[in-house]
Design a protein around this nucleic acid. Structure first.
Lengths: 310, 310
DNA sequence: CTGAAAGCGCTTACAG
DNA sequence: CTGAAAGCGCTTACAG
């Protein structure tokens, strides 16, 4: 009856509920877990440098969204860090040890791919955020449409009259980094010029460094598309120091629409990633996977948000 | 024997270990939890606005530190968000329902005090980060020495020749906000002037707004002590717009030594909070509390980090 | 010291 | 449909 039962008279039901309330009866989760051999929890597995966790708000946003979505089903989120070798070993033990029913894989870099392979091989259901390079056919994932997002931004810059559009890429061992560059390349077509491309790693500092190199290599640039907002904000700083007015001299576009984008100086034009939907979809796919359904990939469009940097 | 046993011959031990390895034996955590009536996990309870979670790196740093420290003891961290009423109800059910052995309480505001009271009344061991206003005598906690940290900063500003030192306070319903203001007040002594005090809420935007008000109310100020780095960075922005050179015209000091402090323009002088130690101490106290020891309070000194904003 | 048995509190297949 | 019993895989108190 505690499970809902089939049909119980309203009186009986309320009597039981009252009794439950009165005696403060609570189900013992450990007994239930043992009987059902379910952990009733899910891991949020971060295989990312710890630095980025503090700096890049995306991780926290994703975590928050996942926790919120799971809470609806009374499933707690267990945080598992796997930033280095030792942590990865521990994390593997933990995850394959029956402590959780599934894994939300939040890693962008492909360096951890042995680790991901192990997780996958263990048979524990997993869903990745972003395309898990090397596992795109085996692992379910939810990704923003990075390619078309980048194209939209570059097209917008060109349509607002920019001609020499540079780009600061993300790390190229991530699908996001690769696809945003690919979108830029496709949209630039014959306007593409190696001097207009500098690599970053998604950090603000790397954006600033890349911007300096771009001003060296292509002083005639009149726009920059940074593969995320943090790098765009680093670029903004360098442009100001260099005396280039944004947006008059140089238009700057970012990616993510992270919390800092609206309050940067000037506020940043960017591609909004629908993080709420991404985390909700990840949870949905993972729950399906736990119920035995196969992997699936979901791609979610991004949206151009025009502010004052372009 | 799996528990270590008393004395087993090395041969027998290695034989068993080999067998364990070979058959891939793993203890079933649910059976163990049921038998011992321990959850073997700990909650990281965030009763903070979700906005701050993404924006303020302190939460992520604390979480990371706690997860890292707990991992040493093979105790996973369960993330529990309790930002609004509904989440708090759910969180209470979860925490008092035996899902975790203890709680790391990461809330600064005292608004959630009913909630904290319930948690405390339920008897689940808990340790707070920062002094839990209204519960300082009942709950264990680990706090930075906010009062003396603030005094150190203000004294330093004065000793470098600043005379009209303003402050941007944190939220005054938090112990950190209160104590950093109190430290400022004590150190200013007769130099204290209401016109030099503006309230913020730890966000960058609130720091910027407070700075604007300060420039109105006390245009002769020559230094600002912001109660955290994010507000200091907001102040930096406003000072630049107002044409006040930092540090020549105005010295700016922050608090936290958060990731953004070293890369702000100019890099920020600040009081370093030893977050690693704070999270490690929280875990230590909580583990003790779980073993039945009483509450304890730990205060950890902060350290002046001089950069280019003063 | 050792080993068999009871017990933790659920779920579920099964006898009635 | 209902209710008693077995079983989940550990830990631990207890008999030997």
């Amino acid at each position: 009856m505690l499970n809902g039962g089939h049909w119980v008279s309203p009186d009986a039901l309320s009597a039981v509920n009252a009794a439950i309330k009165k005696t403060g009866y609570r189900i013992n989760p450990h007994a239930r877990n043992l009987a059902t051999s379910r952990a009733n929890s899910v891991a949020f597995l971060l295989t990312e440098s710890h630095e980025m966790l503090f700096t890049d708000p995306n991780f926290a946003i994703l975590m928050r969204g996942a926790a919120h979505e799971l809470a609806k089903h009374d499933v707690p989120l267990v945080l598992v860090m796997a930033g280095d070798e030792a942590e990865q070993r521990r994390a593997k033990q933990f995850i394959t040890g029956g402590h959780v029913d599934g894994v939300l894989l939040v890693s962008s870099h492909s360096e951890g791919s042995n680790f991901i392979a192990d997780i996958h091989a263990s048979g524990v259901p997993a869903v990745a955020s972003g395309i898990p390079l090397g596992f795109e056919n085996r692992l379910g994932y939810v990704a923003a449409d990075d390619l078309n997002g980048a194209r939209t931004m570059v097209r917008y810059l060109r349509e607002s009259g920019r001609r020499r559009i540079a780009t600061i890429t993300g790390p190229l061992d991530t699908s996001g980094g690769q696809l945003r560059l690919e979108g830029y390349r496709l949209e630039m077509a014959e306007g593409f010029d190696d001097a207009l491309v500098e690599r970053g790693d998604y950090s603000t500092a790397s954006g600033a460094r890349a911007m300096r190199r771009l001003l060296e290599a292509a002083p005639d640039l009149d726009a920059v598309f940074a593969a995320n907002d943090m790098m765009a904000i680093g670029a903004l700083e360098v442009l100001r120091e260099a005396g280039r007015d944004v947006p008059r001299d140089v238009g700057v576009g970012g990616f993510d629409d992270s919390p800092g984008a609206a309050t940067s100086v000037p506020p940043l034009t960017t591609m909004r990633q629908p993080f709420e939907r991404i985390s909700a979809e990840m949870v949905r796919l993972l729950r399906q996977a736990i119920e035995g359904e196969g992997a699936a990939a979901v791609t979610i469009p991004t949206e151009l948000v025009i502010r004052e940097s372009t």
